[in-house]
């Protein structure tokens, strides 16, 4: 990240971050019957994270988000997969949908269904993957390590050399290196 920070962009990004997240959740919730859904909501959320990263620096995204976005995506996949598989435990079809319609105090009449859980999974996958991709590219093009040190254990084999830095002389490749 270059050191120059915009006086204007930073507070705007901070403010918009929350507004965009409210909008993202709104899109997620209306998604079953109206345009919207987990994918679009996830993209809106991802964009706000990227904006935060551009305004405050990429390491800030990691500090605010706390979890590794890729783990978020894995959790989303788990949620989506379990939503699909769960009906089979009751002998129903793979990915069969069930709905619940009723009245809740203060909220009024609501309509809930298992597709919402699936959509929430999609939301997590989209946010996780998009943020991960852009943060990795952003970090490595601005001179930081592509992955924070704590994540190295999850993404690297210790036989690997870091990719960062300019090309060195082509190294000797000794056989298979046992795989």
């Amino acid at each position: 990240m270059n050191a120059t920070r915009s006086v204007l962009f930073e507070p705007v990004a901070r403010g918009l971050f929350f507004v965009l997240h409210v909008f993202a959740v709104y899109l997620l919730l209306r998604g079953h019957d109206l345009p919207g859904g987990g994918f679009i909501g996830g993209l809106v959320s991802a964009i706000s994270w990227v904006m935060l990263g551009l305004a405050l620096g990429w390491s800030e995204v990691g500090r605010v988000l706390r979890v590794d976005p890729a783990r978020l995506a894995a959790m989303g996949l788990t949620v989506a997969g379990v939503t699909g598989a769960a009906p089979m435990l009751w002998g129903r079809a793979f990915f069969e949908q069930f709905f619940w319609h009723g009245t809740v105090p203060f909220l009024g009449e609501i309509h809930l269904g298992t597709p919402l859980a699936f959509d929430a999974g999609v939301f997590l996958v989209v946010v996780g993957i998009t943020v991960k991709m852009i943060v990795v590219l952003g970090r490595s093009t601005s001179g930081m390590r592509a992955f924070p040190r704590v994540e190295a254990d999850r993404y690297f084999s210790i036989l690997e050399e870091p990719i960062e830095g300019p090309a060195s002389t082509p190294k000797e490749k000794g056989g298979t290196d046992a795989g």
Binding site: A70, R71, A74, M75, L77, T78, G81, V82, G84, A85, M88, A93, F94, D153, R154
Partner: peptide
Amino acid sequence: MNLVVAPLLMPFLTAVVVLLVGGRT
């Protein structure tokens, strides 16, 4: 009938669980 789903559901769930617990553990 749901046996048809098993060959693809099993690796899928394995993959996400292993992603979460770590492939090296």
